[in-house]
Simulated assay, not measured.
Amino acid sequence: MDLMVTATADLDTPLDLHLTLEREAEEVDDELHETCLPDFYKRTFRHPYLQERSFTFDDYEYFPVGVTGKLNPRFADYVIFPVEDNHTTVGYVARHTWSKAEIDTHNRKAKYNGEYKILRYRNSTDNDFSKLLYNYDSIRPDETDTVILTEGIFDVIALTRKLELYDNTHIAAIATFGKKISDVQLYKLQCKGVKVVVVGYDGDAVEAVKHTVDRLKPYFEVLVADIADAKKDWDEMEVDQVYETFAYRLLTPIEYKLSKVQEK
């Protein structure tokens, strides 16, 4: 609860909280189709790749993840995260268990040997990911007033673990699947009654953060969690570094832009 965000003097611009009015809502196409998980998908509660990424029992419990094993060769070496919306599977993200360096090395050799390249991610295609938010169902309508906006699934899980947000009904970490937010994603946050959005994109995504802040400002109170080390993301940071970010580097949009000008 000590991490709950309160408005500051800089957040005095009147908010337009009416994106969900009937006229506007008709322009937002948020229709989603139910997605089937890959054949032979089976939920797992222990996996070597995830253990290396510091997964705990609570992570497995709160964030369903599964594998297909060799029964489905297409996904044999992937861990698969379902994407839920209103308790319905509307997509999935499949992450190869090899490191990026290993995949790049393999693909360079495959290019010359005429072999198939390995995709780092093999995701669903039924719904456009610009319409999806990972961990969206953790936002409780008119109760969760603050969300931390991240780029990807592992950022969400890392923040939830390190800030102990598993059962926090007031703050939730969610992912936009990239460094930008769409009209549909804005609309979906408003539908849940979110009031404050903390932009927590990677430290090197300065221009993306500025753009996202500008998109959010008319509808929410906005703050930026400015990661000190631009080479790290939430998954790579130690717990004390995460807490220090929220304690000392939680900036208003104006403060963030000025800090980046000074850094230049």
Rank of each mutant, 00 (worst) to 15 (best):
L3S: 07
M4H: 14
V5R: 09
A7L: 15
A7D: 13
D12E: 14
T13Q: 13
P14I: 11
D16K: 09
L17R: 15
L19A: 08
E22M: 11
R23S: 13
A25C: 01
E27T: 15
D29N: 11
E31A: 11
T35D: 08
C36M: 14
L37H: 02
P38F: 01
F40V: 01
F45R: 12
R46M: 12
R46Q: 13
R46G: 14
P48S: 01
Q51D: 14
E52Y: 10
E61Y: 15
E61S: 14
E61H: 15
E61T: 15
V65G: 04
G66W: 00
T68E: 01
T68G: 07
N72F: 06
F75M: 06
A76Y: 02
D77W: 00
V79I: 12
V83T: 10
T89E: 09
V90Y: 04
V90G: 05
G91M: 00
V93A: 10
R95V: 07
W98R: 11
W98L: 12
S99H: 00
S99L: 01
A101K: 12
I103W: 07
I103F: 07
T105W: 09
H106Q: 08
K109Q: 15
A110Y: 04
K111G: 10
I118V: 09
R120Q: 12
Y121K: 05
R122A: 08
T125A: 14
D128I: 08
L133P: 00
L133A: 02
N135I: 02
N135D: 05
D145Y: 12
D145C: 10
D145H: 13
T146P: 06
V147F: 01
I148V: 09
T150F: 06
G152H: 05
I153Y: 00
L159S: 01
T160K: 09
R161N: 09
Y166G: 02
T169W: 14
I171A: 04
A173C: 08
T176A: 10
T176K: 02
T176E: 05
G178W: 00
D183G: 06
L186R: 07
L186Y: 06
K192L: 03
G193S: 02
K195M: 02
D202H: 04
G203H: 01
A205F: 07
V209S: 08
K210M: 10
V213Y: 02
D214N: 11
K217H: 07
K217E: 14
L223R: 15
A225M: 00
A225V: 00
A228L: 13
K232Y: 04
E236N: 10
E244P: 03
F246R: 07
L250A: 02
L250F: 03
T252F: 05
T252Q: 07
I254Y: 13
L258W: 08
